[in-house]
Design a protein around this nucleic acid. Structure first.
Lengths: 123, 123
DNA sequence: TTTTATAGATTACAGTTGTAGCTTACAATT
DNA sequence: AATTGTAAGCTACAACTGTAATCTATAAAA
């Protein structure tokens, strides 16, 4: 189930806060994109069609909720990237990142701390 | 300059080895995708049009070469993902990854080593 | 009860993508 | 010189995307 760029914008609104109804989504969209209301309606409809969001409640006041969580989505996305561009090798992807992104000393420190905490959960 | 999924397949061939000419690309594509030769020609044409690959040499034996390196492409991609899904916060993206991917102890060790080496380049 | 505002449905339309067929020009072969 | 194989060019066409206008039904307002 592929979610397009524009559709993602709507998903993000819902991930930030849901359920939400149309007026609310229209309102919150205005803060970031200059879309006509129709556009939002179309995107909602397509997302419901794709099964990416669920619609509940009564006609005229439907509530929209994401059907996949932000967490899931991000996990899948990173896995896809890892698979598609790093031969599924997560470590390689990390290395690449550290190497290319020239993280600051603080950032590197933070990461080390994270890793340390991570290892504690193992033997 | 957006490169589509199918186009990426062709880019990957070229990133692995280039310059390459059409017969070679057709041959190498057969190993992974069941595409008609026409499809490859179309994708090449579109990629040249988009400026993603360069064409040199004589008509009838053009050589194709990527115009962006694999490295650049991956950097841009990861930055895009970081920006679009982690508020541009690379560290957060890493954390998420470490947290969600349940890396093995060895992998975590590797990463720590990498980070350590990374910090050495800083003061 | 009539009017009005509007959520949601339907239709639109150009650009992109996935996938491929048909045409042309020319280098190599006969 | 005639034939042929095939890069490269041109055309095709349906599905998906980005973006929106128009229509319809109904809850709220007057």
């Amino acid at each position: 189930m592929r979610i397009s760029e524009s559709e993602l914008e709507v998903m993000k609104l819902l991930w930030e806060k849901s359920p939400a109804d149309l007026p609310e989504l229209i309102e919150r969209t205005k803060q970031r994109r200059d879309w006509d209301e129709s556009t939002i309606k179309t995107l909602l409809r397509r997302l419901v069609g794709k099964g990416a969001i669920r619609r509940t409640g009564e006609r005229r006041s439907y509530q929209y909720t994401p059907a996949i969580s932000f967490r899931e989505y991000r996990v899948d996305l990173l896995r896809h990237v890892a698979k598609s561009f790093f031969g599924s090798n997560l470590v390689e992807m990390f290395c690449f990142f550290v190497r290319e992104e020239k993280l600051s000393a603080e950032e590197l420190g933070e990461l080390e701390a994270i890793l340390k905490k991570g290892s504690e959960n193992h033997d």
